[in-house]
């Protein structure tokens, strides 16, 4: 069986579980609120998701892990998440890079420009 993937936020969450397991859900919510500034609902959502993927298990309000920290495959979720992110970014928020994408040729041109600038 392939090792399940775990993404960044989930990883931070799972780290708390690995450190404190076995841990009650109530305790977990409290810790997540302190360390991750998460709301109760967010903790529930992520916990449920990781249980469904078979990484954690929740038995009668006690959470334990099914894989150790070393076994798990850490993955970057960006590509997966990026597709819908731009569309829902409210127009008035200050984003670092927004709007048009840059083409490869343009990147080349800009690199050239920077190199020229450095030389001069």
């Amino acid at each position: 069986m392939e090792t399940p993937k775990i993404f960044e936020s989930e990883y931070k969450f799972a780290c708390i579980v690995w450190e404190k397991e076995p841990i009650s859900v109530k305790e977990l919510i409290k810790l997540c609120n302190e360390q991750l500034e998460w709301k109760r609902t967010t903790t529930y959502t992520v916990l449920k998701r990781l249980c469904e993927r078979g990484i954690l298990q929740n038995e009668d309000g006690i959470v334990t892990s099914l894989y150790s920290k070393e076994e798990i495959q850490y993955s970057e979720s960006k590509q997966f998440l990026d597709k819908t992110f731009e569309g829902s970014l409210p127009g008035f928020l200050a984003a670092f890079l927004k709007g048009q994408k840059v083409s490869d040729s343009e990147i080349e041109e800009l690199r050239q420009m920077l190199d020229d600038f450095k030389k001069s």
């Binding site: 960044e8 979720s77 960006k78 998440l81 992110f85 731009e86 928020l93 200050a94 670092f96 890079l97």
Partner: peptide, 10 residues
């Protein structure tokens, strides 16, 4: 830190 593609201020 968040699953965003570009830094955002809110």
């Amino acid at each position: 830190r968040c699953a965003v593609s570009t830094p955002v201020v809110t």
